[in-house]
């Protein structure tokens, strides 16, 4: 009776407190049958990566609306890689200018979801792209 469940860490790096999106996504992923670990606000890259290791997650979802994504998303991606968590799927959400998206993808953030993305699109993306 092997019962795999997709485990997702939903984290908010940086200082902005807009957790509406993160919470909606967290709930939607739960309703899609995933186990969602929510870390709360103001997380440093180190805290997020530590949690990702201990919780052995398949996906790390980062949400940030302050515009600091080029620094903070990339911090998390680099640190995950440094810790050997290459197989973890990293996705991001928030107000991300289109021109930043390819730069983020190059750094290992697999996909970026802007405001107004239907939650089912995120669910679909995870199911299709999760690496384990």
């Amino acid at each position: 009776m092997v019962e795999r469940k997709i485990r997702v860490l939903v984290a908010k790096p940086g200082l902005d407190g807009h957790d509406r999106g993160a919470k909606i996504v967290a709930r939607a992923l739960r309703d899609a049958g995933m186990e969602v670990i929510y870390t709360g606000l103001h997380q440093t890259a180190e805290m997020i990566v530590e949690a990702a290791i201990q919780e052995d997650v398949d996906v790390v979802g980062l949400s940030l609306l302050s515009g600091a994504h080029m620094t903070l998303f990339v911090d998390v991606a680099k640190l995950l890689k440094k810790n050997g968590l290459d197989e973890v799927l990293i996705i991001g959400g928030g107000i991300i200018p289109v021109e930043d998206v390819p730069k983020l993808q190059k750094e290992g953030i697999a996909a970026v979801f802007g405001p107004g993305t239907p939650t089912e699109k995120i669910v679909e993306y995870i199911i299709k792209n999760v690496k384990r």
Binding site: A26, R30, V36, Y38, G40, A51, E55
Partner: peptide, 12 residues
Amino acid sequence: PFSGGALLGDRV
């Protein structure tokens, strides 16, 4: 019990 998913929030 409906979706089989869970929100695990204790870590916060």
